[in-house]
Amino acid sequence: MADYLLRRFVQALFTLFVISIIIFALISSVPGGIMAAYEENPDMTQADRERIEAKYGLNKSVPERYLIWLGNLAKGDWGNSFVSKRPAIQEIADRLPNTLILMGVAFVVTLLIAIPLGVYSALRQYSFFDHVMTTIALAGQSLPVFWFGLLLIILFSVLLKQPNGAPLLPSSGMYTPGVERTFADLVRHLVLPVTMLALVSAAGYMRYMRSSMLEVIHQDYVRTARGKGLPEKTVIFRHALRNALIPIATLIGLDLPSLFGGALFTETIFAWPGIGRLYFDAALKTDYPVIMAVLMIFAALIILSMLLVDVVYTFLDPRISLS
């Protein structure tokens, strides 16, 4: 076990290292960036340009810059944002809680919708309910998530109004500006972005939950449980559901990239001050250090979650061994 973990950990580090080289090379080859802002300035002389390039270390070759970046990273320094001049890692840390709130709530809502519906659909396979749910789920999976967000805004912020004429639900930000920040206000701002994320991803999870449950309820041990005369409730919840949830646990771990992608759209559409929005702005302005830091942290999280899935799987399903 320890051997296996160590090997996987070293592999993960290697993967991350390769990714950092690829991403760095890629970003360094993007034209524009910090220099683009100065290009327009007619007073800029060649000397000025060289001075600024030297200041940001842009006069060195890409491999050199990579080694400097790597060296600084080893000291915990991710570089400063070209735009705000603050440390890139600080920019991310400031926005991380906002993203965690949004994604966390959306994720819990997703599972609360998907698991019961998926289980119920499976238990009533081919019923009217099952047909309706599988149709809705396929439609949900086909929905472009950003368009769904726009529709939600049209419906709840443009067409539907409060009695005083204000939009029924706010369509941007985390809190109403100029007013004291309250929990109720935050919840109101969460409704639309969470709906957007949760309904679309619930569609996928529901389909997996349904098929996973269908597979399990035809297993011998479920028949045995029934044969022992256990009440149906116990059979479903203690014997079937617990086993059906194992593949879902894996899915959650492997789904992280699409969760990040969802954050990018939601935070951009709803002006949610999170990491997705930060990255979008950084990409617009070619803010290398912020782009680099966000990509590396996300890649590390994805790799970590894949590793975690493998390890957790062996605990959940003793039939699988790690050799």
Binding site: I19, I23, L26, I27, G261, A283, V294, F298, A299, I302
Partner: peptide
């Protein structure tokens, strides 16, 4: 594995 570990949409923006 390397390609799977990259946050796809984010890299596509760059």
């Amino acid at each position: 594995e390397i390609f799977l570990s990259v946050p796809r949409l984010f890299v596509l923006l760059v």
